[in-house]
Design a protein around this nucleic acid. Structure first.
Length: 205
DNA sequence: CTGCCGATATACT
DNA sequence: GTATATCGGCAGC
């Protein structure tokens, strides 16, 4: 580690624990334009959704703790990785104090570093070469691109000791983030807890 | 671009 | 048995 622990090698400032220790609905828009770094690959977060734990019918935590969602009930600033539709991984940032279970789903990134590694991660079993715009456009696609799977569930994004962390490179969140209902859910579908960077072509839609 | 379909582990009825 | 915080392929436009 460097003499200034919060300053990462790429120049971004590591986000402190207190950033995460708030309700996911508040953290979500603050995550826009932050960097997600996994080893040599990095992207800028351009689309997120908040899941409000046990009070949110769309949250995996709505019916309490299970083996799959246990990480969400742990301390803030960790990564919750879940498996869905029998084949896809998705990544969330755990928010709010330990014992609560709010989290932010990362839905899309603008690829910044390690783009060819991302393309390799995304091209397995595909007929066509994946275009840059499709590398990280969608929660399961970005996990393929960054190599995020089960082994990173529970990783501490503040200690960054498993090669994954979030950083602030100085670009602030948008003054007025785009807002909408969340994508791909049926229950809780009326709640406007999706936020995105308006006009960014890497947003999923 | 849009809409439909199948794949398929986990959690729940 | 049914639903799901998804995606890729393909048909049609």
């Amino acid at each position: 580690m460097s003499a200034v622990p919060s300053l990462m090698a790429d120049g971004g400032r590591l986000l402190p624990r207190r950033f995460y220790a708030r309700d996911a609905r508040v953290v979500a828009p603050d995550l826009l334009n932050k960097l997600l770094v996994v080893g040599g690959r990095a992207g800028r977060i351009v689309e997120v959704e908040a899941y409000a734990g046990e009070e949110d019918p769309a949250s995996h935590a709505y019916r309490g703790r299970t083996r799959r969602n246990a990480t969400m009930f742990g301390p803030p600033g960790h990564l919750y990785v879940y498996f869905t539709y029998g084949m896809h991984w998705c990544a969330n940032v755990v928010c709010s104090p330990e014992g609560t279970a709010t989290a932010v789903l990362v839905r899309a990134l603008e690829p910044l570093r390690g783009i060819e590694a991302m393309r390799r991660g995304r091209s397995r079993g595909q007929k066509r070469l994946v275009a840059d715009r499709d590398l990280c456009r969608g929660p399961a696609r970005l996990c393929q691109a960054l190599g995020i799977g089960d082994e990173l569930d529970g990783a501490d994004l503040v200690r960054a000791d498993r090669g994954i962390w979030l950083a602030d490179d100085g670009m602030p969140p948008p003054d007025e983030p785009g807002r909408s209902t969340r994508i791909g859910i049926r229950v809780g579908a009326d709640l406007p807890w999706r936020a995105f960077v308006p006009g960014n072509p890497h947003v999923s839609r």
